[in-house]
Design a protein around this nucleic acid. Sequence first.
RNA 1: GGCGACGUGGCCAAGUGGUAAGGCAGAGGCCUGCAAAGCCUUUACCCCCAGUUCGAAUCUGGGCGUCGCCUCCA
Length: 494
Amino acid sequence: MLVYNSQTHRKEELVPVEPGHISMYVCGPTVYDQIHIGNGRTFLAFDVIRRYLIFKGYQVRFAQNLTDVDDKIIQRANEQGVSAAELARTYSDAFIEQMERLNVLAPDIRPRATQEIDAMVSMISSLIDQGNAYAVPSGDVYFSVRSCETYGSVSGRNVDELLVGARIEENSDKRDPLDFALWKAAKPGEPSWESPWGLGRPGWHTECAAMVHRYLGTPIDIHGGGSDLVFPHHENESAQASCRWHEPLANLWMHTGMLRVDGEKMSKSLGNFHTLKEVLDRYPADAVRLLMLQTHYRSPLDFSFERLDGCMGALDRLRTTVRNLRWAAENSDGSSCGGDGAQALSGAIDAAREGFVAAMDDDFNTSAALAAVFSLAGQANAYLDAAGASACTSTLLRASDAIVELLEVLGLESVRPQVDQLPAELVDVAADLVGYDGSDVDGAVTTLIEARAQARAEKDWARADAIRDAVSALGLVVEDTQAGTRITRQEGGR
RNA sequence: GGCGACGUGGCCAAGUGGUAAGGCAGAGGCCUGCAAAGCCUUUACCCCCAGUUCGAAUCUGGGCGUCGCCUCCA
């Protein structure tokens, strides 16, 4: 399968370091607030990539950090009058909760920066020993960019050109404006850890490099994140690792496109963001997932609630299709399996599976993969419409299973039919309207359907409608199909 | 200024040489007692100009426009 490597700007064949195994690391959030849906888009994209690699048979080892010590956390904690650790705990819990709601698989390993200080101190010490880093009297430690020959290779930047645009900081002990902090000396009251350079805390770029190496080794197969992390974060991570371990940090760098609102990048600094929590409070996870998967992961994605509404409709349609296929399979005579229609649909099922895999094999083209599933749904509907009550049972079930299974590879799980637990109030409705004297719901349903069928046969529309209205009032749907009347739950999310 | 990405129907979006997937929305029709669901039909000079080619949305050059990174940011 082909994967786009943002370091080489080319699609490359995926060749794992260890055959059959994939190690992945995706930079996690700094936990100082609720994450927004732009963050969510990246984590969702890599969730689908991970799910697909598992689907392909790889043993995937997936690590994602939590940055739980950082300037922003300290600042926010001071504003709120809580400890930095407390604030970080609150929002790392919130992050994990929202990821679960979005149906993102939990990482195999979720290191927290504050629990990995020893690995970072060790890495920094080695870098100093090797001459790639230096401590200054204040207690800060900087990485010497000029000492790293490969610096710039991840982001395609030239060190001399960077210098032109580099910000000149005041009161800095840096030897070169391009150098970046590996260790920051603690100011009074800040969270800090012991180190050979005094009390302090690690720099952001250092955390990821050390955690990647500790949990996955180097090089790893895939290192991912949002495209805004390419520089400086990933460049700096890579520089530390390649100097320290004399190997690339990662063989493949994957970066997701930015999520936009009204054509502009959504970010906390611009203030034009929606939190994931806010969106998941209003829409089911699958609608959010479908919206994001309709665009390729590398392209910018314009977010809007209107589009989310559209996705709700599309999901309902898929659910209805699956429900119709299964209903027909159970209630038709299933006699026409040899016909042209059944043969054609059978071919379409295979084509959809193949199209799905081909699309995903080509740099995780979820948009094209979804199109294959929607196309199958459309063809199955057309077949059902044409074949009616003699539609081939086994082909209907195969089509339904294919739709459900392929969507589940993408983590869209709400299309799988649920066991319909109809409400007990149906017993009362049946008792009132048609004189049902039993106590179980199934009997009530059967009695209601029979009574409605009789009323319709007698053209007693008022009675037929009264039954339908009473059942509808319970939030159920009454439908007259070619294979008979059915009563089901209203569609619309989970 | 440097580096990079992009510009496809009303909206979203796939498609890297052979005359345009899919979703949402719209219009008309069919089916239905009425519905629901579904089906059918229908809308694209692929930003502009020039070039390469038998042939380009797809390659090359130029133009216009949009966005991202270069500073914390998924």
